Amino acid sequence: MKRIVSASLGSSKRNHKVEVNLLGEDLTIERIGTDGDFDKAKEMLRQLDGNVDAIGLGGIDLYLVADGKKYIIRDAQKLRSVVKTTPVVDGSGLKDTLEREVVRYLANDAKLPLAQKKILMVSAVDRFGMAEALHELGCEILFGDLIFGLNLPIPIHTMGSFKVLAKMILPVVTKMPFKILYPTGSKQEKEPSESYAKHYRESDVIAGDYLFIRKYMPKDMRGKWILTNTTTKQDVDDLRERGVELLITTTPVFEGRSFGTNVLEAALLSLLGKKWEEVTPQDYLDILKKLNYIPRIEKLN
Rank of each mutant, 00 (worst) to 15 (best):
L227N: 10
K118I: 09
L165M: 05
I180E: 06
F128C: 06
D204F: 02
F178T: 02
E194H: 12
L152W: 01
E136S: 04
G149F: 02
A197G: 10
V164E: 12
K198C: 14
M168C: 07
I119H: 07
A124L: 10
L227T: 06
K179D: 08
E136G: 03
Y210L: 14
V164W: 03
G208F: 04
D145P: 02
E191F: 12
I119S: 05
M168D: 11
H199L: 14
F148Y: 12
L142R: 09
R222Q: 09
M168I: 13
V173I: 03
E202M: 09
L146Y: 08
A124H: 12
V173L: 13
G138D: 09
S161E: 12
M217W: 05
P153W: 00
I141C: 00
V125M: 06
S161A: 08
D145K: 06
T174S: 10
D204E: 14
Y196D: 10
I226H: 08
L137F: 01
V172Y: 02
L142W: 00
I156S: 05
C139Q: 04
H157V: 00
I206W: 12
I226K: 04
S203F: 14
E140V: 00
M121S: 10
S186C: 02
M121Q: 15
H135L: 05
M130V: 03
K175A: 12
V122I: 11
N151S: 10
L146Q: 05
H199M: 04
N151P: 08
L150R: 09
R222L: 03
P153K: 02
P183R: 05
L142Q: 14
L142N: 06
K215R: 11
I119D: 06
S195D: 15
P171A: 02
S193L: 12
I213Y: 07
R201E: 15
H199Q: 15
V205C: 11
I213S: 03
I226A: 05
G149R: 08
S161H: 06
K190M: 08
K175W: 04
I206Q: 12
I180A: 05
I147R: 03
L137W: 07
T184I: 07
S195V: 08
V172S: 04
L211D: 15
V172D: 06
H135S: 13
R127F: 14
G144L: 01
D209Q: 11
E191Q: 15
F128K: 05
K179S: 07
A197N: 10
L211T: 13
K198R: 15
Y200C: 09
M121I: 07
K179A: 12
L170Y: 00
F128G: 06
D220C: 03
V164D: 04
A124G: 09
L170Q: 02
F148D: 04
I147D: 02
Y210F: 15
